[in-house]
Write a protein that binds this DNA or RNA. Structure first.
Lengths: 250, 250
DNA sequence: CGCACCGTTCGGCGATCCCCGAACCATCCC
DNA sequence: GGGATGGTTCGGGGATCGCCGAACGGTGCG
């Protein structure tokens, strides 16, 4: 039951606070938060996969997913007896990344907590080396590309975050079309990398570049997670096109 | 008592979900959300002011503020018998703005809900015309400035969001120093305006410009809220410097 | 000093929330 | 058809949360 005694005060429309609270409440549960973080890999998960991942019962998962879908954070797709869910759109993904980036306890660096087991440590290393961040590249790989583009004058980060004219040409020369896209999504945006603490290329251009990197065989996914690995051919291509030395990718 | 049965899964450090949930929980209450939205005006409020604004008891307010401060969202300053609180830093302000921007119910346009009373309608109009968004200018005023700068080649929004070299020079010519600032805050960033649905200038440059606008008498605050009004002198200055016609500010 | 005011702490009430297991429905496969 | 699997619904239990009023400590002012 909604309380009604709220002062409107700001006159920005009654209930702006209530709507903000409702949105935040969707992420204010550990289990739902774990779901959203898992879905940041950009793929669609089934109910039972998420249940196993978070360690809760299937019934619990079902209810949580219902709320997340109704709240607009997730989109669902039914296939046979499976219910696939994924993040509703890149906007949402960026919002969650952003929020998660602020959720690290103050003062703790990248080593934060630290993995407990050997297996976890190696997985953590792989993620730090290269991973996808929803639909673009992050980790040292993403940073290396972003920095190299900046050094080569394709991207400027000193007065904001935008492609230069050369940068636009470069995308075209590589066969990655950026024109003619009519979406509300920004062409370029910076996305703060929580392992590297620096922005990497996101937005439509980041997504196109990521897709191209997979299509051209520059990198491949490791296992079923978000981690990606640069192939030998990818190393050559990145060195040739952007002057990225192999040591930047280790 | 924290539950311990979580699967780590992503190996991104146990408890990433828990931390995200804890952060979101701070905003997941209608009263706390109302506090944060009120504090988006960039000023420091006292406990009792916020209590009156949100329509809750002082004791309730005190407890909420304790949690928000402990969670790092708010900074506090004690002065005599008053406790002043404000948003901890511009990062936090941007995070809340961003989250609030996504909290509008899908499909509802700027008219959303609509003010109930005549007084609320006039206040709402004033806010739509011009307001501060934490420490920079928003509303039609903020958009008009941003668009004018873009048209004049001072800012480019087509391939991201960044000042051009001319833009950097322009700031210097106006006596607004942007160099020599060494903060982790980005020099320029876009901030989505929820009444206009377009980005306006934020970041350090946005804050400097806003401060200059007040110092030079281009605009003044209306009453005690976030709304601002352009002065006659401000109209002349904006027309002269950026070619902004007075109709853009109505 | 004495009064007014701001803010905090504490006890307790009511509501909500999160979880699970059990029962049930739908789908797929043999 | 029959059995296995994925997903949902429902009831209930346990914990947390948000709120208030009352009592209390500090500060400022006449």
């Amino acid at each position: 039951m909604a309380r009604t005694r709220r002062s409107d005060g700001g006159a920005r429309g009654r209930g702006a606070g209530a709507r903000l609270a409702a949105l935040a409440a969707l992420l204010a549960d550990e289990t739902r938060a774990a779901f959203c973080l898992a879905l940041l890999d950009g793929r669609a998960w089934t109910t039972s996969e998420l249940a196993r991942h978070a360690g809760v019962a299937a019934s619990t998962t079902s209810e949580h997913l219902g709320r997340l879908v109704e709240g607009g954070l997730l989109a669902e797709e039914r296939q046979g007896r499976h219910r696939y869910v994924r993040l509703a759109d890149p906007e949402i993904a960026h919002l969650i990344e952003d929020l998660a980036g602020h959720a690290v306890p103050a003062g703790t660096g990248p080593a934060e907590g630290g993995p407990r087991t050997l297996r976890a440590a190696s997985a953590s290393n792989a993620l730090a080396r290269g991973r996808t961040c929803y639909d673009h590249l992050a980790g040292r790989l993403g940073i290396a590309i972003t920095e190299a583009m900046t050094e080569r004058g394709l991207l400027r980060q000193d007065t904001g975050f935008a492609l230069t004219d050369e940068g636009m040409r470069w995308f075209g020369e590589q066969g990655m079309a950026l024109t003619g896209r009519r979406t509300r999504r920004p062409l370029v945006r910076g996305c703060l990398d929580w392992t590297e603490r620096r922005p990497h290329l996101a937005g439509t251009a980041g997504a196109v570049l990521c897709r191209h990197a997979f299509d051209a065989g520059w990198c491949v996914r490791i296992g079923s997670g978000r981690a990606v690995k640069v192939t030998p051919g990818g190393e050559r291509a990145l060195a040739e096109l952007l002057g990225i030395g192999p040591e930047k990718l280790r």
